[in-house]
Design a protein around this nucleic acid. Sequence first.
DNA 1: CTGTTAGCGCATTCAG
DNA 2: CTGAATGCGCTAACAG
Lengths: 338, 338
Amino acid sequence: MKNVNLKHLAEELGLSIATVSRALQDSHEVSAATKERVRALAAELRYEPNAYASSLRRNQSKTIGVVIPKVTNHFFALAINGIEEAARQSGYHVLIYLTHDDYAREAAIIQHLKGGRVDGILLSVASGTEDIAHLESLQDANIPLVFFDRVRTEIATARVTTNDYESGYRATEHLLEAGCQHIAHLLISNSLSIGHNRHQGYLDALAAHGRPYDPDLVLAGTIDNQRNVQLIEELLRSRPDIDGIFASVERLAVGTYHACQQLGRRIPEDIKIVGFSNLESVSLFDPPLTTITQPAHDIGYEAARILLQAVEKKRAVLPSQSVVLDSELVQRRSTATE
Amino acid sequence: MKNVNLKHLAEELGLSIATVSRALQDSHEVSAATKERVRALAAELRYEPNAYASSLRRNQSKTIGVVIPKVTNHFFALAINGIEEAARQSGYHVLIYLTHDDYAREAAIIQHLKGGRVDGILLSVASGTEDIAHLESLQDANIPLVFFDRVRTEIATARVTTNDYESGYRATEHLLEAGCQHIAHLLISNSLSIGHNRHQGYLDALAAHGRPYDPDLVLAGTIDNQRNVQLIEELLRSRPDIDGIFASVERLAVGTYHACQQLGRRIPEDIKIVGFSNLESVSLFDPPLTTITQPAHDIGYEAARILLQAVEKKRAVLPSQSVVLDSELVQRRSTATE
DNA sequence: CTGTTAGCGCATTCAG
DNA sequence: CTGAATGCGCTAACAG
């Protein structure tokens, strides 16, 4: 089947390309009758405008790029869900890029996106990223950027996050109130905003309760999860006095769970765990895991809303548009999912 | 900062646009010296080609569309992971669209994609889809399509699936060998390939073991998972003789688990469950769930490979290129008991 | 080896 | 209200 384009329609209708184009965009300078004729034929021939020609001409792609570390983390899956919803509502398309927490990959992706493939970018920073020159250059290229979850405050733009500091504080307090004496904190890269903030909450909660801070009880996870479980086991073996664990990310929470089972530490009798997790099925773990659940869908949705608003009005995204949503500390009992 | 484009580079270098273009594409009809000069300036100015201009001209977008029911299902998250990997290796981009199992949405997405936004489509059919005219029209538009997981055999193209029939058979046999007398099957839409095939495996296993088929023991799930748990509970209440359940999709497997806990049915003493699931953390459920795990990443990767190969060679995708990968039946052991 | 020319399909001036 | 003409940025055919 021939590609049906404006020219095709125009010839068929005995009109000019310009008029057809205007009619399809519901321009007020086209007669109602003509509009109707054009639309009828377009519908009949199932005309679809060529998105790239249009993008080239208008200098906007109706597309946003989503750059995340991975998609197999339930937080990001939920966030994408929210992002896609917001995008669809505004007639935007969503390109997905995975960094696998690798700085080089993140930089390459960002660099490429400066070619105009997207009108804006949603980014959750890779844990391997230190240097942020690639992000600064986005400003020059005039491509709006909105951070979500894993942010960098050095870049002057909006950030959509959860109350990481408070969550870390409350998680730690929860363990303290449950009687824990030696609470370890497992985090990912401390250079990452979420790791840093959650850790600060942990520190302050300890201080507020007059507990000493023991650096040996802080473990920074790696990319490799097998290795993480090993590291956790080592930690637990070398410090049998640990009776509480705050795990800053899902992988580490689940890893801790595994490690405890492996070592025969009973939960929650011997050791109590609070972990970040957006996996609904943790409610089926037994013993149940106390979790901090983030409003992942809403984070994605909000971040996309902010970005799209800026894109549509061709305005910059301001740091003042940042949003902080609340996580929930949930002591799971059995509940229905979804 | 001004957008740096070919014209810009050409002026700066005192060359024609065409030469610059050729140099950047490493054309053999450009002198090495010129190439070097061009590349140096391009790198210095961080030139990024405008993808849409190139797409328009070449009539190919270097982009594939992935159309799936949802992303919050771990199977699809893993599949996307594989797809992104294959795409990146070939320099392709990935657009994500979610149907939420809604036919109208799927049709609208497919229709839109005929506008040339993508060079090919990977599709996992929505459970709400019956009519497939929208998919047939892709052939006319000359856009290659590869199905994965949820396929429709009426369309003559490649399908990447798991051995659903065998999995259903083995799951049922597993329950029979464990001594179950009344085995229920929970599936989604029977019009969906995976539901249909898994169900056929269930039926044949029953027959092979000389067991009668009781239609009352077959439950078709809905979109709404809350409702599914209710339906499962009703089924279990009305048929207390059920002592085995084969759940065809992750949601229903987890839902069954919930329902059993709710009703106080002990697993596996009172009732045994085998369910499809790609969620690694099911190993932490207690009592553990016997699962059928699909090679989700590989499915995505394979499907993308087949599609990209066709796209690059501008050849049609043939049904004969279909691939069937094997699922694994895993009896999880609770590590806590050791 | 390099430059000139001609579009890809569309949106938008500027004329009428 | 409609048409003719222009160019978005890039590639490719055709000259030289």
